[in-house]
Amino acid sequence: MAARVRALETILTEKGLVDPKAIDAIVETYETKVGPRNGARVVAKAWVDPEFNAWLKRDATAAIGSLSYSGRQGEHMQAVFNTDETHNLVVCTLCSCYPWSVLGLPPVWYKSPPYRSRAVIDPRGVLAEFDLVLPEATSIRVWDSTAELRYLVIPLRPEGTDGWNEEQLAELVTRDSMIGTGLARVPEVA
């Protein structure tokens, strides 16, 4: 596979369609700079800053862009907020559309056929695979990502975090909690 990818890069470079330096820069960005830490900061800010929270609800693309996490793909973002009544779960049934700018690249299970096919028809069953069992009364809303619109789940703020600052809160936000296959970590009682 490596030789084939090299061949593609050679052809595309010769045709002036890609610049190897730009390729290196993109790889570097995704390996070191873009990842779920970005999303965790968005979530933490939404928890402490009501104005940002409202902006995120209204226009997630702009609100996230204000933190310089705008997608280079120009895709639109929608933030979906968990409540006590509704839990949100994100999938891409078609392929693997994912909010790269805030979550980096998707984990292996997100791309797998069982997750993509089961999340919509049996979300509760899928969440159980993640050892996430929600109260029967909580409804689960499944969001199917597309090439144009990608979703970021804003998990519920854990109890016992009153007075915490953004940085501390961001540490509680896991990648899975922003996809909806997990919850934010509960702080350990000291």
Partner: peptide
């Protein structure tokens, strides 16, 4: 190679 393939798609 996965990284290169990923980046090429973004670049294109």
């Amino acid at each position: 190679w996965q990284a290169e393939a990923f980046a090429m798609v973004l670049a294109l």
